[in-house]
């Protein structure tokens, strides 16, 4: 547990990158939670007076081709994008960690065969695998979360396995083994807590990728279906307006997407640098 308990002490001297990132993410989370109360419009509510109108009082970021309020949709989009990304990364971390623990601890042929299978999955460019799986499974929210979760799991399995392999020869692990701990206790009380630290660094970066993956899938019509308020889907719908000079429908959701991913990247990279310095 020492790795986790030591964390609060380290937070006190977090680098400014992490603080900026956390501030951004707090604001996005705030938008997600309070979305219904921040504008007068629902995310799929149409204003029959204004179709595809630029920013103006009442519709601060304009309306889209259906007369829906862009600001309201962006704020509600934070719920979907943040929610799907965090759920998917949670699945990826859990699945990857379990698999990595088992491979590293079991060793032998389990490890050997398992790693070859992971190699094969990693022979596919990530986004292309995501496209194919999303296309085949169909785009319900659950399927999207599962797809993004599964696809992001292999790196965690690798990471945890490598940690477990290096921990196996440490004295305290040998002592715990000699003291007659069961396999379950070895895995979850002695190895897992000590192998978790690198995951804390990768997970925020991964949340950023997961959001980009979801938005990209929606952008090409394989993610959240219209008229769902998801940033990538909004950009996709707005792309058609650009050539007519109506820039706001694609631009604003993209800024929201960019800033959120930036927030995760700032946190992840800041933590990474902290790790290097230690």
């Amino acid at each position: 547990m020492s790795a986790i308990l030591a964390l609060p002490r380290r937070i006190v001297r977090l680098p400014s990158m992490v603080l900026v990132g956390l501030t951004i993410l707090t604001l996005v989370a705030f938008a997600a939670v309070f979305a219904p109360w921040l504008t007068g419009w629902g995310p799929e509510e149409m204003d029959m007076m204004y179709f595809l109108e630029g920013p103006m009082p009442g519709h601060w970021l304009g309306t889209d081709a259906n007369g829906m309020d862009v600001l309201s949709r962006i704020l509600h989009g934070a719920r979907i994008d943040l929610g799907v990304a965090i759920a998917a990364v949670a699945i990826a971390v859990t699945l990857g960690t379990l698999v990595g623990l088992i491979f590293g601890y079991a060793g032998g042929w389990v490890d050997h065969v398992g790693m070859r299978v992971l190699d094969m999955f990693q022979a596919f460019p990530v986004f292309i695998l995501a496209l194919a799986v999303a296309a085949i499974l169909g785009n319900s929210m659950i399927n999207l979360i599962l797809t993004i979760g599964f696809i992001n799991a292999p790196p965690y399995a690798r990471l945890i396995r490598a940690e477990v392999l290096s921990l196996r020869n440490r004295t305290f692990v040998e002592a715990a083994e000699a003291a007659g701990n069961s396999h379950i206790s070895m895995l979850f009380r002695h190895l897992l807590p000590n192998a978790l630290t690198p995951i804390l660094v990768i997970a925020p970066l991964n949340c950023g990728w997961a959001i980009l993956m979801l938005a990209s899938l929606s952008f090409v019509g394989l993610g959240v279906p219209v008229p769902g308020a998801e940033w990538g889907a909004m950009i996709s719908a707005g792309a058609a307006d650009i050539v007519g000079g109506r820039w706001w429908t694609a631009t604003f959701p993209g800024i929201a997407l960019f800033i959120t991913v930036l927030g995760f990247n700032l946190v992840g990279e800041g933590l990474q640098e902290q790790g290097v310095k230690r």
Binding site: L212, I235, G245, W247, A250, G254, F258
Partner: peptide, 22 residues
């Protein structure tokens, strides 16, 4: 580099069209 890693590429493409074509 931080910008390049965070910007959604499809949106960047659209913004370049908006700026340089439109």
């Amino acid at each position: 580099a931080l910008f390049g890693n965070s910007v959604p590429e499809f949106w960047l493409g659209l913004m370049l069209i908006l700026l340089f074509y439109q």
